[in-house]
Amino acid sequence: MSVSADQLQIRIWEEYLDELEARYARMAAELLFDDLLLEYEPEIWIPPTHLGQLPVQLAARVRELLVQQGDLAAAHERRRNAVARQWRAVASVPRPEECSAVYLDATS
């Protein structure tokens, strides 16, 4: 069975969009881990030019992904800023020069 040029173009774009969705899923999962957020460097997304023209059948999916991309970027920024504020607050607490162990008698 031969594949038409239009079908091939759709498959190529679908694979790309699947990869983009997987990347967004990873980004959403990173929102749960403070350490990852502090190290997160947002990538500048550049629309693909090497894939050819977007098939009309995939336009709605692409619009949904663009909304998801904007939502994730905003959520990452808010979460990252919140974590950074928490770390600054912790760092601002004065620490004694010499730490010693503290024991609590919880049985008496």
Results as ranks from 00 to 15, higher is better:
Ser2Leu: 14
Met27Val: 12
Glu19Cys: 05
Arg95Met: 10
Tyr103Lys: 01
Val83Cys: 00
Gln57Ile: 15
Pro96Tyr: 06
Glu64Asp: 12
Leu32Asn: 10
Ala59Ser: 11
Asp35Ala: 11
Leu17Tyr: 03
Ala101Phe: 14
Leu37Asp: 02
Asp35Asn: 14
Ala60Ile: 02
Arg88Pro: 03
Pro48Ser: 01
Arg11Lys: 10
Val67Tyr: 06
Ala89Gln: 12
Ala82Met: 12
Asp71Lys: 07
Ala5Phe: 07
Asp35Val: 11
Gln68Trp: 07
Leu66Pro: 00
His50Met: 04
Ser100Arg: 14
Ser100Thr: 14
Ala75Asn: 06
Gln57Met: 12
Ala89Pro: 01
Met1Ala: 13
Glu77Gly: 03
Pro42Asn: 02
Gln86Met: 10
Val93Ile: 15
Glu30Ala: 13
Arg26Trp: 13
Leu37Arg: 09
Thr49His: 03
Glu19Ile: 10
Ala84Arg: 13
Arg78Gly: 00
Tyr16Ile: 01
Phe33Ser: 13
Gln53His: 14
Asp6Leu: 15
Ala59Met: 05
Ala82Gly: 08
Ile12Trp: 03
Met27Asn: 11
Glu21Trp: 11
Val67Phe: 07
Gln68Gly: 02
Tyr40Trp: 12
Ala82Lys: 08
Asp34His: 05
His50Thr: 08
Ala28Gln: 05
Ala73Leu: 13
Ser108His: 13
Asn81Ala: 13
Ala25Lys: 10
Pro96Met: 05
Glu97Arg: 08
Gln68Ala: 08
His76Asp: 03
Glu43Asp: 11
Arg88Glu: 08
Ala28Ile: 09
Asp6Phe: 13
Ala73Ser: 13
Gln7Pro: 00
Ala91Ser: 12
Pro96Thr: 05
Ala25Glu: 11
Met1His: 14
Trp87Glu: 07
His76Leu: 15
